[in-house]
Design a protein around this nucleic acid. Structure first.
Lengths: 210, 210, 210, 210
DNA sequence: AATGAATGAGGGTTCATTCAT
DNA sequence: TATGAATGAACCCTCATTCAT
């Protein structure tokens, strides 16, 4: 029994298993309504053990948000910054990459979680704003600016245009996470990405200009 | 003290005062973390009195969401359906009207509230999907369809295009409600509306087409 | 309307209507679980009005018990004291009279009520003991004593024999009130009275004695 | 203080300690008026700990009643069924055994508790009727039937006679529990048992019959 | 490292009682 | 006299957190 490999505890894997279980629970119920008992059970441990890894429910929650989202943002940034392609191509590619995140439920849960708990966790909202939103918006704005500067895009207010780019992508994540499980029509991420990119590129193009 | 009565009868005004206080509290903390004690205090009554008007915390929450959002949707519908103007004009007008809702914090709180609690209140999410989202999307889709049929807009996939229209508007509400209080740059609703409408109309226009 | 006789309030009748409703409610739920709201509703008035007639729930409860039981005891006492018949006849008659009380649910409820709440209402238990039990037992003991003195009954310990007389009668009331509504076999009060009287008279008789 | 731990693990002993404390509290106040806080304190624990052992106040109450009474009934049954003695001897023995239960306050509390709460706990009343009353009455009835069949007892209506046997025994329990603490004359259980048995045996005997 | 019994503060809910009308 | 809106104390129950094992 004691030496059965099934029961060998991988000490290093623990924190990640806990974070995964916690994300699922927090996403399903919100911070306040999530129970540590359920998180522990889902992670295959007991309540007391949680406290060996995280000092409180709050810290666990913050660790969940911080740990889940940052790597993704960095990945998207890399896509854009490394490339030399025309802005139009990069924009379409960025939208398409983002739409692929729709396949990952844990990712779709994060925006809802942060927006939901922004009132109770101001520092988390701030962190998310600084590390995710600002960087994400900056990514898009830089891209638009490049396009305008290169004469690919017509001159626009880049700051607000970025909202037109990102809004539908955020909407699709919230839709997937919060509405589809409650009877909403399922979303075809790829089709949405194509449609959105098509509209945006047309909106930005110089065509038809004198 | 002796000459100020402990309480006063205000049966008629009470429910609305309660709903207002409850919306503020639910919006700030979420359903689970909101305390009836605080809602009551904000409404100028005591906890027990809440139960003269609403049978439980849950029902109070549902009444808040239902009562706050429905009138607004109906108002927006009326704007579009009554008008005979070209689709492009209507679309710009719809976006501008919506952007005016950004001035009303209570309205901005609703989407977050529903998305946050969709996991704990499936029937509320369903109600919101049926009565708000479906009707809102339908409004936009009908408008786009009219424009396409009239030869004003180029032929597009109306279903997905509606996401491109609505996404940024939703984003602006969440931004105002959840991010601005936490350090995010303030949003100029009118400017955003102009920018978004400009991009959309360009994206939809026949110009530059053979 | 105002002069409709149906709605004429008989001020004098009020207290009794309240007592009746209160007895039913207290009997069904016990003192603590009975709700003044329900009592008032059953009496056709509102909660506040109760306080015009009784200063508190406790006093209402005491009035219920006191008002319901005392007249009955007095009636039974009169039966015995007035009569000149032989003790055996009187005993059978007393038992039969008592068994008739089984038809009156309100009466059957009283013993349970007093026994139930004796812990919370010591003065009520005391009152009941002094005014009902002592007098009831005294009635039976006096009767037995008369029979022994007259040579009708064999010499017995009158004090304890009274328990043998009264116990089954009490049991029948509790049975009717608490058990029959919960599936117990219905009791034939008259048959029980006959059987009990028959056994008692045989137990007390001189027959078979030298 | 520093050297006395705040609590100690006693998983095995706890349930019984709780049941004991709960019985005392329920017996003293009734179900509705009993406070879990007091029960917990009497058991040497805190309120929350109760819920580790019983899921609700109701279930605790039911466990109290079920756990306290069943063993006693079984014990009495064993006394009667195992014996080969004449019915008269058994009957006197049964009454005497029962009277010994008067020494155990917890037992005397049970009938009152069940009768009191029969309105609020129909299933408990049913359980008590099925498992205690029916079996107790059956015991007595079987014994009487044996005596009649053997020619020891005169022919009587066994069903009703059982009430004459049991009623005084129940009365003595209620007396002990509810009246003695409130000023009633103390009962001598042994003397009452002798008196009752004497009367019953005389009532049932064939003596003096032609 | 891991457990899970125990805690205790805090929340939702009920209801006897009060009092302006 | 009668109402019923309002109160506030008290109760059951939950659950994050602690700590002896």
């Amino acid at each position: 029994m004691a030496d059965s490999p099934r029961w060998r505890r991988r000490k290093e894997a623990r924190p990640d298993e806990i974070l995964e279980a916690a994300l699922a629970e927090f996403a399903a119920r919100g911070f306040a309504a999530a129970r540590l008992h359920d998180i522990a059970a889902a992670a295959g441990i007991t309540k007391g053990t949680l406290y060996l890894y995280f000092p409180s429910k709050e810290e666990l929650f913050k660790a969940v948000v911080r740990g889940t989202i940052l790597p993704r943002v960095a990945a998207l940034e890399a896509v854009v910054e490394a490339a030399e392609a025309p802005a139009a191509v990069l924009l379409a590619s960025l939208i398409q990459r983002w739409s692929e995140l729709l396949q990952i439920p844990q990712i779709c849960a994060i925006p809802k979680l942060v927006l939901s708990e922004s009132g109770n966790f101001p520092d988390l909202a701030r962190f998310y704003y600084d590390e995710v939103i600002t960087r994400g918006l900056g990514l898009v704005r830089g891209l638009l600016r490049r396009g305008v500067a290169a004469g690919e895009f017509r001159p626009i207010d880049v700051d607000y245009a970025a909202f037109s780019v990102i809004g539908p992508l955020l909407l699709s994540m919230l839709w997937r996470h919060s509405l589809e499980p409650n009877g909403a029509a399922p979303l075809d991420g790829a089709a949405l990405a194509r449609s959105h990119a098509d509209l945006l590129l047309r909106a930005l193009s110089m065509e038809g200009r004198p």
